[in-house]
């Protein structure tokens, strides 16, 4: 008897499932456990549960509660298609995120693009995240914002901040060190040019260093844990230009892969004037300058900074 029962079970189960569905179809408002027990006496609780779970996960029935009883109701085909639509929505969102590439996309932008409600989008995103299809990355631009991108993508530098950021923190000292090193290198090249050449034009030309050389020098120094790209070095050199210590010149050259047909040359320069006279006395940098007048509490005669400066 037992073996026969075991052998019969699978077939019966399928039968049970079909019969379950038929029962549901028969009573559109839903069937209760009791009804199932009555109609399918061979089906015990455990089997019933399995069937119910399966049907639920397949999206074929709904689980409802009526009073204290549970109701199983067949989902009508429209809503069944809605479920598929739900899948479509997911697909849509997934596609949007995929399109954003490694820059990621902000949740609000996802919403604009697919026109879904925020709650819906949130749900879909949670789903996708659990499925490990997408991930959220904190953007360095706005620390509260999260962007979503495909799971296996490396976030772009604009998001993470690139070489200059480690964990959202801007690495000022690192930048300063690089700044100083680049400058020293350029100065060395300029000094060498001055000594080697006598003709001023040749001197000038020799003191110009191409970006390539600077990049190589810095990379060889090995002060950076991360491999720095040429663009990285270029941004550093630009800060030197803004410091007024270096100037840049563009010369026509071979079109390279990064491709604009220009070679960028840099050299260190001397300032036009030494420090202006005003800043050689305390008044230049005085914090209470605007309150200072003769006869007031702050005045040239009572000035503490002047006194200190004159004493040295």
């Amino acid at each position: 008897m037992a073996t026969a029962a075991v052998k019969e079970e699978p077939i019966e189960e399928v039968d049970f499932e079909t019969r379950f569905i038929m029962l549901c179809q028969a009573s559109p408002e839903g069937i209760t456990d009791n009804v199932i027990q009555k109609e399918l006496p061979q089906c015990d609780t455990k089997q019933r549960m399995t069937i119910v779970n399966r049907l639920l996960s397949m999206g074929k029935i709904d689980l409802l509660k009526s009073g204290s009883k549970l109701l199983y109701r067949l989902k009508d085909p429209d809503s069944a298609s809605q479920v598929k639509g739900g899948d479509n929505q997911e697909k849509l969102v997934y596609q949007i995120i995929k399109d954003a590439g490694n820059k990621g996309i902000w949740i609000r932008d996802i919403r604009f693009k697919c026109n879904l409600l925020l709650t819906q989008v949130n749900k879909i995103l949670k789903n996708l995240e659990t499925k490990k299809l997408i991930k959220a990355v904190k953007s360095v631009a706005a620390s509260k914002k999260k962007v979503y991108m495909l799971y296996n993508l490396e976030p772009d530098r604009s998001v993470t901040g690139g070489a200059w950021y480690s964990d959202q923190d801007f690495e000022s000292e690192f930048v300063e060190v690089l700044n100083q090193q680049c400058f020293k290198y350029l100065e060395q090249r300029a000094a060498a040019a001055r000594e080697a050449k006598s003709d001023p034009i040749a001197q000038r030309n020799a003191s110009f260093t191409p970006l390539e050389d600077v990049w190589k020098y810095i990379s060889d120094l090995g002060i950076s844990k991360v491999q720095l790209s040429k663009e990285d070095i270029e941004t550093i050199l630009n800060t030197l230009i803004y410091d007024g210590k270096v100037e840049r010149s563009l010369v026509a050259g071979q079109a390279t892969a990064s491709g604009d047909g220009y070679v960028k040359l840099y050299r260190s320069v001397q300032p036009l004037i030494p420090t202006t006279g005003l800043m050689r006395m305390p008044c230049g940098a005085c914090p209470v300058f605007d309150q200072c007048y003769e006869g007031g509490a702050v005045s040239p005669t009572t000035c503490v900074y002047m006194k200190e400066w004159l004493e040295i």
Binding site: T239, I241, L272, T275, T276, L278, M279
Partner: peptide, 24 residues
């Protein structure tokens, strides 16, 4: 150019090198 140089000198000595960068 000379005037800019003088002003830059003031900015550097009064506010520091980072401000000078911003100014330039």
């Amino acid at each position: 150019q000379l005037v800019k140089a003088h002003i830059e000198s003031v900015v550097q000595e009064r506010f520091g090198s980072k401000c000078l960068r911003i100014f330039r």
